[in-house]
Design a protein around this nucleic acid. Sequence first.
DNA 1: ATGAAAGCGCTAACAC
DNA 2: GTGTTAGCGCTTTCAT
Lengths: 333, 333
Amino acid sequence: MHTRPPTLSQVAARAGVSLKTASRALNGEPYVSGATGQRVREAADELGYRLNSLARDLRTGGTSPLVGLISGDLANPFYSAVASGVERELRRHGLLLVTANSDEDGQLERSLVEALLERRVRALLVVPGGDSREYQRVRDDHGVPFVFLDRPPAGLAADSVLIDNAGGTQQAAAHLLAGGHRRIALVADLVRTTSQQARIDGFTAAMEAAGNPDWEPYLRTGVHDAATAERTIGDLLALDDPPTALFTTNNRLTTGALRALRGLDRPPALVGFDDFELADVVGTTVIAHDMTELGRQAARLAHERIGGHTGPPRTVVIPTTLIARGSGERPPR
Amino acid sequence: MHTRPPTLSQVAARAGVSLKTASRALNGEPYVSGATGQRVREAADELGYRLNSLARDLRTGGTSPLVGLISGDLANPFYSAVASGVERELRRHGLLLVTANSDEDGQLERSLVEALLERRVRALLVVPGGDSREYQRVRDDHGVPFVFLDRPPAGLAADSVLIDNAGGTQQAAAHLLAGGHRRIALVADLVRTTSQQARIDGFTAAMEAAGNPDWEPYLRTGVHDAATAERTIGDLLALDDPPTALFTTNNRLTTGALRALRGLDRPPALVGFDDFELADVVGTTVIAHDMTELGRQAARLAHERIGGHTGPPRTVVIPTTLIARGSGERPPR
DNA sequence: ATGAAAGCGCTAACAC
DNA sequence: GTGTTAGCGCTTTCAT
């Protein structure tokens, strides 16, 4: 049961060779005679030998083939799509993914960074949830590359992959304005992340550029989950002068919006940031972008740093597309 | 940049103490004077010391605080919900989750098992994708506990957590029969997994028990993705004598069904196995079960084995509930 | 309360 | 081709 796994020297002993010869044989290094190699491999098989990569990694430089990803809960399709992309790209390079859930809590996030660094991960990918000024110190911590996803820490020059928040928001705003809407509600998440802030700023700028101040009474921020979004939107629609259109700044909030609009006779127009499964079925107009690609690009940047790439921090921007599916084309009433 | 991280002996040297004293101080062991402890901690801080858990783990027994989860793509909400539950439970015990995507390919799965065992994970959780006879050998491989999720390898007694497939299928069948349906199409995934097989068997048994052979022409298996499901269901509905109801055996297939039924005047009834986001919005009747809980239970079983629990393999069954939301209550035409 | 020596399982460096 | 020695960074004896 709890027998310790066999070691290389046990294999060597059984094959009647030295430790190093066994090592060479099993690692496919040159300078092992065919017969010897054969015997070693047999011995290993019989013993059920398996390399201890802890020991190997310690010896070969104190680093493991692990890459850490710290994000919010994988139950959120945004994070799981990102994780999927990260994993796919890492696997191409023989790296393994360690996922850790910060619950979007800055303190927990920080301790996870520590834990993963202790594990000697080769790189760390982070979707910062909380206040992220802490990364100033941690950055390039003894050569462990950091890549930030979706929400680069404010004022920190670091490798990062983000969504074209300004552009996407622009598209949404233009689309609704073109549809004749003026009273447009903006329902946004917590403003502490740079991505949410960028979406709010982008929207505000677009409205200003269009000379439309009518939206201002309908700005709602700090809406962090679907249930709150549903309630908030219900309240908005109960106003004397309700908005004729809604723009929700992420998938969770869009879900809440769909619940709030369910069964309504003449629902307001709706555009949501982030595409989502079944958006085609329910006919929701969205600002789509490839979240899996976002993960993949982040993993790619990390891999290049691991490979020794030096040079200034790079930023990859994932483009957005407006996909019209009906909800965003409803006219103002 | 690529300076090697400081080691414990560097900390010790700087604090003017021995290696062991530094170790004691940093690990909060007794028998260190306050002043000494203080000095060591300062030295560590100044150097930016961080424990190398590779080295520690090697020394303390050759095992890491990592637990591996091998499943299909996290982009599938089923797997990501499971992963979320696993991670949450592991975190309570200070364990980290390494996720690996098998793409539901048996060969890749096998190599991932090897890779994770080499990493000396403390336990391995597997959602077997392919033919899983291989686990006979691997099971309890030198004390590394295995837990199987959703699809226990046929004929292998091992810790596992599964969904009440028979019960859930029963509920679906009974619900549709009670609604007056006879020509019920069963759209199922690849039969090579035990869970799919159990759902098909359960459905067949329920139809036999009800004395209804009319469903037989409408059995479709081997449908592995949403697009194929959409096409398959389109074909079914184009038959001279189309089914009046559909039962899809997982979330992917239900998604395909929703696409196939979109815009239809008089769509057939639909019940899907697995709950999914927005099912309430689109009004789909499902056989729901808690996938996150499935992950959590699996992690719990693994943790108990890690803690030394011996005894016969255990099986945890996650119950199912039928949630009527409209689509399953449409009468036969 | 502190330290010296040994060793976890492996590979790098250098013999032979 | 093969073996010997040393050592990765840490913790575990066992002294002192």
